[in-house]
Design a binder for these strands. Structure first.
Lengths: 195, 195
DNA sequence: CTTGTAAGCGGAGACATCTCCGGTTATCCT
DNA sequence: AGGATAACCGGAGATGTCTCCGCTTACAAG
């Protein structure tokens, strides 16, 4: 096992046992989501199954949403890397309009793939919903929009383009209206074309 | 007191004591929301204050969201009446584009006025969120859009225009970005102009 | 190795939502 | 008026989220 090197950053570093627990909690939670569906994920049960107290779960992840977020964090990192340093059309190099399109499509795919988890996230604390990832997506999109359509209110437009990607809405469109991911994407394409 | 006339409709009619309780529960809940904020509304407490058992509250309103919805139902009815039979520009008579604009503005005003309640509603069961009122708004908007922009996917566009009116998003725009209701409306106007 | 201490741990318990069901009562019908 | 009965009522309790705090332990410094 490699030793944890002390990093210059302020956060006092996580103790080894704590890291082990975090890891085990995430594994157990992942398994339970696969088995019972995300909506039935009980933190009490996760704690029991992972052989830790409930308090430990809450200290590590803050609250239910925090744990859920940890379960989709890998996808989020991958997406951010893709649009920041990846190949076109989502990454730098393509014209803004294409990057916007590619980014929104990727986001739809993510929401569809982990729909249940995203729905839960959207229904948890409304504070958390617009911090971190949302702000990153928003900034990215607003930058591209400002480039593609100078003069428009890029920040508001970015909100307005991200809003229809709500996991709840997508779930509704798929479940009640029988729309496929492709139809949703093509609807977004229509919208982008009009802009 | 006027006697409850038996109506032809199937629903077996609500007993007088039940109606009284419903009324009292709504009054108590309204008072408590004004006093403590919507987020702190506890159904146990509502029941105690209204001198009924918890079971009664749940039988009448189904769940927390149901009660919350009852608190904004009056506004919803007023809005629906306005755009269905009211005077232009929101009602029939004005050109579609203007009706769309007036409708969205009215919706923003409602969300801003009862923001807390709408946020709670959006965070409750994701099923309820797209039933009833949402479908009415969606149908109305899709009809107008089909008229204003034949050829486009009016149903998807309607979703996409309603999504940015999420109470959570509006709350975020106001609280964290310092946007006023007017700025939000003018952002929507920009968006409509582009369409 | 010893030791000081901050980080971590567990689980009892406060508090919420929602379900269930045995007892009660309003309302309709005769 | 006098049932019959469907609707209604209350509140105990199942289950879940999250907090709090006294005890424990990893780990760095001496």
């Amino acid at each position: 096992m490699t030793r944890e090197l002390p990093i210059a950053g302020q956060p006092p570093a996580e103790r080894a046992d704590a890291a082990r627990n975090r890891q085990r909690i995430i594994e157990v939670a992942t398994r339970m989501v696969e088995a019972n569906g995300a909506a039935n994920l009980s933190l009490d049960e996760v704690a029991r199954e992972a052989n830790v107290g409930v308090g430990t779960v809450y200290r590590r992840f803050g609250d239910r949403s925090g744990l859920i977020y940890a379960l989709i964090d890998a996808g989020e990192r991958a997406l951010q890397e893709a649009f920041m340093t990846g190949p076109p059309p989502i990454g730098p190099g393509a014209p803004p309009a294409e990057r916007i399109r590619a980014f929104l499509h990727a986001l739809v795919d993510r929401k569809v793939a982990q729909q249940e988890l995203f729905v839960l996230l959207e229904m948890g604390s409304s504070k958390a919903r617009f911090s971190g990832p949302y702000m990153v997506h928003h900034t990215h999109l607003a930058t591209l929009l400002a480039e593609a359509r100078p003069g428009a209110d890029a920040r508001f437009l970015a909100d307005a383009l991200l809003a229809p990607l709500s996991a709840c809405l997508i779930g509704y469109q798929q479940a009640e209206r029988g729309m496929s991911a492709e139809q949703i994407k093509s609807g977004l394409d229509d919208l982008l074309r009009l802009l």
